[in-house]
Design a protein around this nucleic acid. Sequence first.
DNA 1: CTGAAAGCGCTTACAG
DNA 2: CTGAAAGCGCTTACAG
Lengths: 338, 338
Amino acid sequence: MDRRPTIIDVARKAGVSKSTVSLVLQNSTLVKEETRAEIRKVMAEIGYVYNRVAANMRSSNAGLIGLVINDLRNPFFTEFATSVQMTLSARGYATVLANTNEDPDLQAQVVSAMIEHGVTALMISPTYGNEAASFDPIARAGIPTLQVLRKVVSDGRQFPFAAPDYEEGGRLAAEHLLSLGAHQIAFIGGFQGRDVTKKRMKGYLSVLGHAGIEPLILPGRPTRAFGREIARSLAQDYPDVGAVICFSDLVALGVLSGCAEIGRRLGIELKVVGFDDIEDCAQVWPSLTSVRCDIAGFGRRMAEILLEWVELGRAPPEETTTPVELIVRASTSPKAIA
Amino acid sequence: MDRRPTIIDVARKAGVSKSTVSLVLQNSTLVKEETRAEIRKVMAEIGYVYNRVAANMRSSNAGLIGLVINDLRNPFFTEFATSVQMTLSARGYATVLANTNEDPDLQAQVVSAMIEHGVTALMISPTYGNEAASFDPIARAGIPTLQVLRKVVSDGRQFPFAAPDYEEGGRLAAEHLLSLGAHQIAFIGGFQGRDVTKKRMKGYLSVLGHAGIEPLILPGRPTRAFGREIARSLAQDYPDVGAVICFSDLVALGVLSGCAEIGRRLGIELKVVGFDDIEDCAQVWPSLTSVRCDIAGFGRRMAEILLEWVELGRAPPEETTTPVELIVRASTSPKAIA
DNA sequence: CTGAAAGCGCTTACAG
DNA sequence: CTGAAAGCGCTTACAG
């Protein structure tokens, strides 16, 4: 193919100046309707395509948003990223996406790359560790950046944060199990000391505290494999524990597999609550009770918040918390199974 | 923040011309080592960040690759997209990603957006329907574009195609079940008439043909929900069918749930083979036998093929087929379950 | 309502 | 080894 046609080619063919063509591109009412139609016709004829990059150089509104995700293979983050990307797309923005795989160095690298590419704003579900390597360059470049799902930088003025109400989720889960008559309720999975774990655990701890029940915390990787392992050790080492709250649905799904493996009946011998309510929860059998974070809705909302920031200059509050709800399914209601 | 520093600021501060700074940016040996070091120091001091967009305007090598995916929420495509993105990132390219949700109009829209953003090349796992709306603009723009996983445009010169060897996968699955003594083997899920379905089915049909066995095809959505439904109707309407090949792992996972629900034992009463070998297959219980497409490896390879095309001008062959293998697990070997 | 000119931040010949 | 000038494809005041 030859060189792509430019506004100069269009202008020449249409017999106007390139400024006029530029105005048409911007749908300006300064140009007579007739002329506009004529110029558009010429564009179609010669196959003109708008060079947004060049336009951006002068006016600097790239229409490019960077989305950085710590673990894109995890369905929870996939759902989130997809939702953000599609919302941005509907609003005329393209998304440059990168998975950091929980690697702080990789994160720093992709963040720099995005800055070089001139992203208008960033949304980041960050990984833990070496936060400065990623966030200092962003701060220097002065790019509006939203921390989501995990808070790793405490300066909420510069890097506003948003997440579902994890603490309330932990509370709802614990209250639900308590109302079902559970006497011993364990919290399983999740790395100790991390913000998300602490929040989810806090709700659980406060409910148990009020009820005068001794908590049991079994931390671990937030994976199916861990859930599967813990299902076995729960049966062996903690036979009296009749209910568990899982750090995430992945852990809960692992528990489901583990229980199937050892023949322990979910909902009857062991009640299980997941966290996040990813799609799988409703699809597996027995279906999983879970704390719904409405991650798709959360993604849409985050996209909108970010665009409001870049388009209207309206910075989000330092911290945004979105509501959660408990979705009760078979894994905590034996009748649904029978 | 103020305006970002440019090479002019760097040049002024370092007391050289901006051309020299530009050469340093490109690591040119034309500039004395000393000068280079000095200029780099200045850059660090004033917080200079390279403006790749401006650079691109003159030299047109954007370092931006467009990745278009038909269903990003499906773990198979997630794995693929993640693998592609990470490989590109490691090679210094940023990825602009879009999910089309199987919507041809949306696909056409995101493709145009990517072209406007000046992507260097495109990789597309396309949706079916109105192909011209997406591919004609690409052709006009003359952007190197690889069709992956699904072939919707037949012109392999202009749009080379690559996918795992689906037909061989169908064959391996059928042979495996046959060798296990299965007498009636059904192929379930997948939309009739689509290229992927036809390929996967073809291997199955040829094996059954040779064995003189009547095929049974039960097409349907490639989803967990369909798998769950069909598990029930298999037990009711086709009790003699002792083995199924699923169009995809999602269907197989649905069958697994469905069987758990009605108390049918996988591997014993019903042998199940999935397709793709997504991560879940090894994690669920009983674990699923599946045709491994090594989708992560496939993604890496596709990224490399595409970069070879844009960097060295070496266009890929019209069609590339990558090997598959059968991974045998509990769902087809009862002993593993016991 | 439309045109001529400058400028966005780089790279690329071309001189020296 | 380094500098001055033109140009990438647009937008944006400024004239007219």
